[in-house]
């Protein structure tokens, strides 16, 4: 039997909202340590990896590892029947379940839904723990704003790191521009900007994907950008007390 109860069901809705434009059908993996999901985006350029640890749930039980194939679109239809303040419980009864049950619980109402599961042939990629040469932490809303602004000028956005901070730049047909974000250690953790730079990087990415990733900014006030030259970048949103959502994107390799 598998059972996972979110005290804050709104959080689960935000996670689904964050990935719905990137992935269509996904395998949700559950085991004794928690729930995870790994999927390539529909254009096979980005990788989405979600980890939710069992300790973050109000109740968690998983006796045997399970793979649950879900349509994100259908999952969203079911989640629309829940309130933002509901507690949400996911449950399966059988060893090889064909449906995933949802219970939405508020003060005044309990709703039950069953979502039909699918069998999906998706391979898991092995993403190693990598030491990145530049790691930047900054407010997620600031990153969203910069991507939106610079994305108006060109489809590619450059990122350059140094000990002083991080610089975003664009060059387009209409002109060019840059935004530098300075390091600060304000007392408000959500406004902090930190750069750990062992080796500076200068990379270029499709801003369209950043704009899709930024839907996840509702999950965390800070975003972590981990980069090494000519390697995929990782954009990470820490989901407080539960885990994280990591988004991997390939850099533009040739100029």
């Amino acid at each position: 039997m598998f059972e996972a109860k979110f005290e804050d069901g709104g959080l689960f809705k935000k996670i689904v909202e964050a990935i719905k434009e990137l992935v269509k059908n996904v395998n949700l993996e559950a085991n004794g340590t928690g729930i995870s999901l790994q999927a390539m985006d529909t254009s096979h350029v980005a990788l989405v990896a979600l980890q939710l640890n069992e300790k973050g749930f109000k109740k968690y039980r998983c006796e045997k590892s399970l793979t649950m194939g879900l349509s994100i679109e259908n999952l969203q239809k079911i989640l629309k029947c829940s309130g933002n303040d509901d507690q949400i419980t996911l449950r399966t009864q059988d060893e090889e379940p064909t449906t995933l049950s949802f219970t939405f619980e508020s003060k005044n109402r309990i709703s039950e839904f069953q979502l039909n599961l699918m069998s999906l042939d998706q391979e898991q990629l092995g993403v190693p723990d990598t030491e990145y040469s530049s790691v930047v932490r900054m407010p997620s809303n600031e990153f969203t704003k910069i991507c939106r602004e610079l994305g108006n000028i060109n489809e590619a956005i450059g990122i350059e790191t140094s000990k002083e901070g991080i610089k975003f730049y664009v060059k387009g047909d209409i002109g060019e521009g840059q935004v530098s974000v300075k390091i600060n250690d304000t007392e408000k953790p959500e406004e902090r900007v930190e750069c750990e730079v062992d080796e500076p990087v200068n990379l270029s990415f499709a801003v369209r994907y950043f704009n899709l990733f930024n839907k996840a900014s509702a999950l965390s006030s800070q975003v972590i950008l981990s980069m090494s030259q000519d390697q995929p970048l990782v954009i990470e949103y820490i989901i407080e007390e539960m885990g994280s959502l990591k988004l991997y994107l390939a850099p533009k390799i040739n100029d």
Partner: peptide, 14 residues
């Protein structure tokens, strides 16, 4: 703009 399947190939090759 980008190599399709770059990420897939990159992480498989690790």
């Amino acid at each position: 703009f980008f190599d399709q399947d770059y990420i897939q190939q990159y992480y498989q090759a690790q």
